[in-house]
Design a protein around this nucleic acid. Structure first.
Length: 718
DNA sequence: CAGTGAGCGAGCTTCCGCTTGACTT
């Protein structure tokens, strides 16, 4: 066998087996289906469904003493897929590794190639890349196969091992000092950090009173407002009512004269088509979807919706950091705009958007697979949420290919003795892309009447108004993802899981769509920041990425990056281990519940499945019970309402005396009883807005606002 | 729109990044 060259093997097989197929391996099964359509007869297309080879979960598996030699294994549960690929490769002359054209895709390809070679078959294995799924792009890729880019693989390896070293060193430190099961990592701990720091800012914030003065005028039918911006030539800051009154008195009987009319024409560019981050932001802001929900719906649209002619993937791949679109899609959009609007709505030069720095650009932007499938045309085949998200994606893409809007912005100065008022207005000269993005910029309301310099106006009313400065807002799914994306921390496929992880660890809570750190989250963050502040900074990842790029270009050895990082790092970990005090048990809280068996007080503890009550006599007494959230309202029942979470189903609240008592309820009960009838109060959001406390009893109707500190409290013992 | 229903406390947790189906570890 040894003396056969690859070529000889190749030709020998051709003779023996006749025409054998080529195998193409991609990452996702939906992609495999589409590509299969384009390639036809001589090709089999299979998908790896992501990574198949990785570090084992159960141990570090990195030999730091031996140049960080990793011990890779086949990921549990993925052996079947790998074997299938090997089997398929046996039947093929050629294997094209067509995973995504980025760092991770190169590594996936490399690992598959190794596995195929270990199982000594004879196919020729090549790497191909394309970053849009069109017939021509795929054909071109097949014509230009290359070898694995080992430098790119090394960059991925360095990234993977660094993340493993960080995660598997910091997490055990937390188990030892705080609580088992906790976690820390290069990405999640930065996310936790900014959430905690924002909370600190909010806690430290002292609202300051300030005043504004506004005059309202009328000309013809049009009312408009102007705000005082200067007084006696100076910028104003009115901090007390007395000051406001002094100014008000001095201007109110004066003549108001227009002293300047400043007109500017501004062009507004349409936004780029969606990346994952921007889609999650829009889904959160426009429809209040949490990130994971946006992604689940996007996945459904991508995988295929049943239309009249069968299942159709409505959108391109939903995990991307690119705003690039294929030329064919762009042309289709331009044609659509021309046919449905007019020539003026297509820009002379097609709109091209720049990718963010550091973008891996393996996939196109998220766009409809065909603009001809308008939201209205497919509405009847979509669920409400699918329709909402598809509309967002479709409109965003179409507008991205439309002309700029032209807006006239008018600033008018109005003087009254020492006071200078400013009115701002805006009118649309040409709506351009705003024609499709109807929401938001209905600018007719913002228009000012025609005003000329020297004109004298009579105010309808002049008012002072008190305000308070406000603290910065808490992070939401949308703003956290925006932060991560803009900082280059995490990837499109991880934004949503990061949030889930922080919530699952009980580091943060989502309340009214905002993230609030828990006590555990603050404590953990405090420990991490005190000891690893540089590692958990935005700059660390930025710097790491820059060095990974050097590795990818072959300018830096991957071991060197890890050497430079690891040894100082692990010393810091050891230092921290020595000097850190023991916080174990600090999150446990004593309650006034008494253990039924031994009479000792019960503690509120955080377990694997959430909070629960346990006897403080542990380990002598091992009594536990679910958190009582309120008294069971069934007459004659002495049970408590506790949370129940059936697997894969929505949680609900039921009586602890089940099955003797089968009282259940959907809304979260509270520890408070109705002052009118004594029944328990539940937390209900009134018409989708703020949560209120509502009496459960039919016909009682008693309602009161929900105070922050009883939202999640254990029922008080009576 | 219904109806949904462990036990957590001891051996093992944990990272980030690719992807989807899914049992008894």
């Amino acid at each position: 066998m040894l003396w056969y060259s690859i070529q000889e093997k190749y030709s020998r097989k051709c003779i023996n087996m006749g025409n054998r197929k080529s195998l193409v391996i991609v990452e996702s099964s939906t992609k495999a289906k589409t590509i299969n359509k384009y390639l036809g007869g001589g090709y089999t297309v299979k998908s790896s469904m992501g990574h198949l080879i990785d570090l084992p979960k159960s141990r570090l598996a990195v030999d730091v003493q031996d140049d960080f030699r990793p011990d890779y294994i086949t990921i549990r549960g993925r052996g079947k897929i790998l074997n299938e690929l090997i089997k398929e490769a046996w039947k093929s002359e050629m294997v094209y590794l067509a995973a995504d054209s980025d760092r991770e895709g190169e590594a996936i390809s490399f690992h598959i190639k190794n596995a195929l070679e270990k199982n000594n078959h004879n196919a020729i294995i090549k790497r191909i890349v394309f970053n849009e799924i069109t017939e021509s792009a795929i054909q071109e890729a097949i014509q230009n196969p290359r070898n694995i880019d080992i430098s790119l693989v090394n960059a991925q390896k360095a990234r993977r091992i660094l993340d493993r070293l960080v995660g598997y060193s910091l997490s055990p430190l937390l188990w030892e000092k705080v609580k088992k099961g906790l976690s820390a990592g290069r990405v999640q701990s930065v996310a936790l950090r900014v959430i905690c720091e924002r909370e600190d800012e909010i806690e430290c914030f002292i609202p300051k009173e300030y005043w504004t003065i506004e005059a309202e005028f009328r000309k013809g039918r049009k009312f408009f407002k102007a705000r005082l911006i200067r007084f006696n030539g100076e910028k104003i800051e009115i901090s007390t009512e007395e000051q406001a009154d002094i100014i008000l008195d001095s201007v109110k009987n004066e003549e108001f004269i227009v002293t300047a009319v400043d007109e500017k024409i501004r062009k507004r560019k349409p936004p780029a088509p969606f990346t994952t981050s921007k889609l999650q932001q829009a889904g959160g802001i426009k429809h209040r979807f949490p990130s994971f929900k946006t992604m689940i719906i996007a996945q459904q649209l991508y995988e295929g919706i049943n239309l009249e002619g069968g299942p159709v993937g409505l959108i391109t791949y939903m995990r991307t950091d690119s705003v690039r679109v294929s030329a064919s899609a762009q042309n289709e959009a331009r044609k659509f705009i021309l046919e449905n609007f007019s020539k003026e709505y297509i820009p002379d030069v097609p709109n091209i958007y720049k990718n963010k720095k550091g973008s891996q650009d393996a996939h196109e932007a998220i766009r409809p697979t065909s603009v001809l499938r308008t939201p209205q045309a497919v509405k009847s085949n979509l669920t409400k949420d699918q329709f909402k998200l598809y509309t967002l994606i479709w409109e965003r893409f179409i507008t991205s290919q439309m002309s700029k809007a032209e807006l006239k912005q008018v600033g008018v100065d109005i003087k009254a003795d020492g006071g200078l008022f400013r009115a701002n207005g805006q009118t649309v000269i040409f709506d351009g892309f705003l024609r499709v993005m109807k929401q938001g910029d209905n600018t007719d309301e913002k228009a000012l009447p025609d005003l000329r310099v020297g004109e004298i106006l009579k105010p309808v009313i002049i008012e002072k108004e008190m305000h308070y400065t406000e603290p910065p807002p808490r992070y939401t799914d949308a703003t956290l993802v925006k932060f991560l994306d803009e900082s280059g921390i995490g990837r499109p496929s991880t934004y949503a899981p990061i949030i889930t992880t922080l919530i699952n660890r009980y580091y943060i809570e989502r309340k009214e769509r905002q993230f609030k750190p828990t006590f555990l989250g603050k404590l953990t963050n405090g420990i991490l920041i005190k000891n690893f502040s540089e590692l958990l900074s935005i700059e660390f990842t930025a710097n790491m990425e820059a060095r990974l790029d050097e590795i990818a270009e072959g300018k830096l050895n991957w071991v060197k990056l890890l050497d430079d990082f690891y040894f100082p790092f692990i010393e810091t970990v050891e230092d921290a281990r020595k000097k850190l005090e023991d916080f174990r048990g600090i999150t446990d809280e004593e309650t006034d519940y008494v253990c039924e068996k031994c009479g000792k007080n019960m503690m509120k503890k955080l377990g694997r499945y959430g909070y629960f009550l346990a006897c403080s006599g542990f380990p002598d007494c091992r009594t536990t019970m679910s958190l009582p959230l309120g008294k069971c309202p069934e007459s004659g029942c002495d049970g408590y309402i506790v949370e129940r979470k059936p697997r894969k189903k929505r949680k609900f609240y039921g009586c602890s005396n089940y099955p003797e008592c089968n009282f259940t309820i959907r809304d979260m009960p509270s520890s408070k009883n109705c002052p009118k009838c004594g029944c328990i109060m539940i937390q209900k959001s009134i018409s989708g807005g703020e949560k209120n406390l509502v009496c459960l009893k039919q016909g009682c109707e008693h309602t009161e606002p929900l105070e922050e500190d009883i939202k999640n409290k254990v029922m008080l013992k009576v």
